[in-house]
Nucleic acid binder design. Sequence first.
DNA 1: ACCTGAACACCGTTCAAGT
DNA 2: ACCTGAACACCGTTCAAGT
Lengths: 231, 231
Amino acid sequence: MASTASTRVPLSRERVFQSAVDLVDAEGLGALTMRRLAEALGVEAMSLYHHVSSKEGVLDGIVEVIVGEMLDAVSDLDPSRADDDWPGAMRERVLAAREVLLRHPWAPEVIESRRAMIPAVVHYYEGVLAILRRGGFSYDLAHHALHALGSRVLGFTQELFEPDTPEGDEANEETFRQLAEQLPNLVGMLSSVNHDGEDTTLGWCDDQTEFEFGLDVLLDGLERARSRRSG
Amino acid sequence: MASTASTRVPLSRERVFQSAVDLVDAEGLGALTMRRLAEALGVEAMSLYHHVSSKEGVLDGIVEVIVGEMLDAVSDLDPSRADDDWPGAMRERVLAAREVLLRHPWAPEVIESRRAMIPAVVHYYEGVLAILRRGGFSYDLAHHALHALGSRVLGFTQELFEPDTPEGDEANEETFRQLAEQLPNLVGMLSSVNHDGEDTTLGWCDDQTEFEFGLDVLLDGLERARSRRSG
DNA sequence: ACCTGAACACCGTTCAAGT
DNA sequence: ACCTGAACACCGTTCAAGT
């Protein structure tokens, strides 16, 4: 019954979102416009609006895809581990999520810009909370823990500064050189911290070593707060 | 010598940035366009480009103004307090910065989007580092501490979700209702955490109580990491 | 040196029309 | 039901020209 002339697959929300992820993987966030996305799908820009309400909806959908990959990645971890080692269970979950981000290094920027209740994100947080509850946290302390961990539960650390792009302008380095003599502590810190290792990295500071170390400091501090409160 | 016909003050970077802050204070971030900003200054849009290189430069300038206010606010604190009570000194500094944000509640969003080395931000971090160093942190551990504290050193907590705007659509609440039975822990947490108090607030979760509590958990965890390492 | 007006090259999005 | 083409209402920014 199907015409053999055109085997075009009909558009769907899922195809739109996956295509958006592929486009950004290949060409960066700047390439994501409604026109470019439509082109990649072999369709006119306005056809997209039958499946998404706006470009904001596309960005939400991108997060749904990425965090969906995280949910897949954590689905075969053992939830009962949290009963007697919640920091270990959390660490395992978060590092699995981080591996997804290493395949989509632009994703933290998009995730940070979204505050809508995206189903995959909500489910991911539910799993984080489950670990904290099994580990003995009250709802109230678990809430504080979520905020203290921040983006780290999704596998990335916020950057403070971004280095200048290799080919771009040198505004940052120039600013820093001019101010350097008023900044003894920053100069000292930057010279003692390795910022050009070959380590797997999501950003200037966010390499695997820094991420794991900072995560462990937080998990330890939170476990201490928990045990102090539950007596 | 000066003509009395027009007492127009010449444009300057400082006037452009301050005017941008005033515009956003009055009408929100969405109102900030080069054309609107020029209008507020009684000038054509293109005149702005003699003083700033781009709209990105205006946003950097806004952060310079806001964090400049923070530097003023912390300038009369006693640096030597960190010598025997670094968590107290940090707490004092951070809460002073937060008071600036309470006057500009849109500012966290702008600050989060900037990664350039803005002079005021660099100086602010220098002061944060000075406290950690006086408190006995190695450069390496101070670096981890900065990332662990994240946006908190500038006085705000990242939100996880934003509630629906009062007049806006109800997409978030709708999503949540549909998923609620699969989310026992989130439902439990949200019902036990106060999200509609009259407290001074920067966001849904970021009220003064949550901010101070979460800050203290982190400061305590960091002090523990420090004392464990220095023996 | 500083500011302007018109224009350019994009955006996201609306709308009426096609099939 | 789904897709289209043209148009709208904006953007940020360039450029040649004014004073």
